[in-house]
Amino acid sequence: MLFSFCVFGQETTQKDLLFEASWGGRKIHPDSTYTMDKGSVVQFEILKLYLSDIRFLPDDSKRDVSVTKVRLIDLSDSLSLKFKTGLLKNDIVTGVRFLLGIDSLVNVSGVYGGDLDPTKGMYWTWQSGYINFKIEGSIKDVNGRVRSFKWHIGGYQSPGNALQEIELKHNGIGTLKLVLDLEKFMKEADLNTKTNIMSPGVEAVKLAEVLALCFTIH
């Protein structure tokens, strides 16, 4: 009886999704610094982003995909970096599809609670709309000059719709780890002129497109 319980307990354990921000394979911490190619040193102070409509794609196409409506990832909040997927531990996942940000319907439908509560600091106040992601920090160049960067990227209306749909392939079973490669992002971002973007528009969309290419799943 005890044996049966253990076996069934293991089978019904849910598969978690872990989020990790990385720099060249190293896990990023807000207190640490990271060196770029030309010797500039980067420090991240804030990394917050919305993942929504998260769908895991099991190998059996007859089964419904597991859907998580919205998760706010906050690098400073370890509890936000791990969440239940609704999948069983032994389920084989062939991929994951999600939105980076909040879709237009939610953006125009009034106030929500939970991770979407405006107290989370991810809703603009001077105009309506969720901030899909925030990345803030500073860069110290080889001459010791320090510049800050502040990207609050959102926008749900064309041509400033910054929402990104991302699909990643995955092989294998076990725990899922979604990795955001910020080294790749910082290489691609325009650090010379566009270090402050805090309103919707074409520049915000470009940066969202860059970030969308920096996710992998392991």
Binding site: G110, T125, S128
Partner: peptide
């Protein structure tokens, strides 16, 4: 017309 829904309107004066 910056605000698209009555529920979100109060955020603007509260924060300004």
């Amino acid at each position: 017309g910056a605000i698209n829904n009555l529920d979100m309107q109060a955020l603007a004066p509260i924060s300004h």
